[in-house]
């Protein structure tokens, strides 16, 4: 493996120092937060010895528990739906040529880069308009947990599609053709060859969707209604009221949850070892 050119000693040292400063910048705030979540003191900033007391404390807060439940419901439903829709989208974009494919491809990735606030107000205006329209012809609807679910699916479809498509891109298209050449029908070739091979990609996409859904605050805050507060929305408004030891504890748990999800996703996205058949002869 080429390590590139030899950088001069001075430059090399600066690069190294910069890199470690960046890692410190990334991790120290999180580590401090985690450490202080085990602070026994009632006052967040004064170290009063090691204690895990805020964790059980937190679980006695009904608001937190209901927000957690909401978050889990939203994350579960939106992940399931966006995984199915996003996977089908990735397959269509990767394997087929059809009219409108280019447009669809462009549109499909916009939800990822559009700023959260924009996506949030777009959906808010949409629901307002849709409720007004539906109200005229029948059902009186209002914002609630289900509008959060609908919104999360909208951005998660894109995430799943990107991850699954990356996996499809690593796959030799000849594999499915070989299966068909060996008398497999189209469906069997997909089910027996392509699907098992992209499954890790689908799972990785699903885990990321889950993580993003559990993390989203801006969009959820705008499109949620009475009784539909999710955990990040709760945390967001709590932060604006001030830092509490309880908040440190919830944050640490949320950090841990998303780290586990992300690590699993990265693990599944690893480039499959020797998927492409190698051509070296034994020596």
């Amino acid at each position: 493996m080429s390590i590139g050119m030899q950088t001069s000693k001075g430059v090399g040292r600066l690069l190294k120092i910069n890199a470690w400063l960046v890692f410190a910048f990334f991790y120290i705030p999180m580590i401090v937060l985690v450490v202080f979540s085990f602070n026994a003191s009632q006052r967040v900033n004064i170290w009063g010895g090691l204690s895990a007391r805020w964790y059980p404390e937190m679980l006695r807060n009904d608001e937190i528990l209901s927000a957690l439940e909401n978050s889990l419901v939203v994350a579960a439903i939106s992940t399931l739906a966006s995984t199915i829709l996003g996977t089908a989208l990735a397959i269509a974009l990767d394997r087929y040529r059809f009219r409108g494919r280019g447009t669809l491809e462009g549109v499909a990735y916009l939800p990822i880069i559009i700023p959260d606030v924009t996506m949030a107000v777009m959906l808010l205006a949409f629901f307002a308009q849709a409720f007004r329209f539906l109200g005229n012809i029948g059902p009186q609807l209002q914002l609630g947990l289900y509008t959060v679910v609908i919104s999360h699916i909208a951005f998660n479809i894109s995430i799943v599609a990107v991850v699954v498509r990356a996996r499809l891109g690593q796959l030799d298209p000849a594999l499915e053709q070989a299966a068909q050449d060996l008398y497999a029908s189209r469906w069997k070739a997909f089910r027996l060859i392509t699907l098992p091979l992209i499954l890790p990609g689908i799972l990785a996409g699903a885990l990321l969707a889950l993580a993003l859904s559990l993390d989203d605050v801006v969009i959820s805050a705008f499109v949620t209604g009475p009784g539909g507060t999710t955990l990040p929305v709760y945390v967001f408004s709590a932060i604006r009221r001030g830092v509490t030891p309880e908040l440190n504890a919830i944050s640490t748990l949320m950090l841990a949850a998303s780290t586990v999800l992300v690590l699993s996703s990265l693990f599944l996205q690893r480039a499959p070892k020797q998927e492409r058949t190698t051509t070296k002869e034994d020596s």
């Binding site: 000849a174 070989a178 091979l197 499959p272 020797q274 058949t277």
Partner: peptide, 8 residues
Amino acid sequence: FQSYALFP
């Protein structure tokens, strides 16, 4: 197939 396309 040129790439053999063996099912990995």
